[in-house]
Amino acid sequence: MKRNKKPRYITHKPTPVEPLDPDALIEVQHLSKRYGELQVLNDVSDKIYQGDKIAIIGPSGSGKSTFLRCLNMLEDPTDGYVFFEGNNLCDLNVDINVQRRRMGMVFQQFNLFGNMSVLKNITLAPVHVGLQELKRAKRENLKNKFLNLFRGKDSKMPAQHVQTTKKQIISDAQENALRLLKRIGLESKANAYPSTLSGGQRQRIAIVRALAMNPKVMLFDEPTSALDPEMVGEVLQLIKELATEGMTMVIVTHEMGFAREVATRVLFMDGGKIVEQGAPEKVFGAPENDRLKDFLSKVL
């Protein structure tokens, strides 16, 4: 698979990598991002562990979304590192596509593929990955078969047993998709196109689409900001359910009540930095930073 040729680094002297915490699922080290003169992220470091529910709050323009998008390299950081399960995502030799499959992302604008039915939206990526692996296994077998002609009797490589077929992969993915759709009560919409659905339905399907890849962590980029007020509830309900099931998640949100209820840790960002963080009771109940106090007095 060809990689994005754009250099992920435009840095003068790279920051040295600090020793990794083996327990952390995502480890962010000295992450910076600038657009020309504008410094959006300024030396952000954080560790996210398995099962954490992180809520990121802050005024607009504080770099919350950029931080989230840097976690799966949708934005290329200008400095610093992001490690996911010990893999340096900023390293060009790491296949970012493989890593991204383990990180589900949900966008503010849903971004369901407009040219595909709901079912196809959900199965597109799993089917593609499945077929790719099938093809690779078959190719490997063919190569071994050919090389075996030249190998001695003892050093012949056995062929891997390829069990699945193309049909099997597709029907498995569809079954899984329908199961997920049933869970959110939208199995009747499987063959509808996204443009016929309401915002809340679209966002729930977008969440399910990310879930279909069995991600280790879910990234939510303001999942309810583009929704009608009456549809916010159903989406938050689904996210809450995921949280109680133990899914690791990072949520950029303006829903303070929701952040307080679901999060295990709240990050308050301002000016491209994490200004204050801690348990929701502490951040919302006893804020220390003046900027945070000011922010909370306006939104609560």
Partner: peptide, 24 residues
Amino acid sequence: GQSEACRALGMSSAFTMLRIVVPQ
């Protein structure tokens, strides 16, 4: 956002172009 969503699912840029961007 369409291509971003596809890339975020871990699909390659060529696949994204072919299946998402060009058809639309």
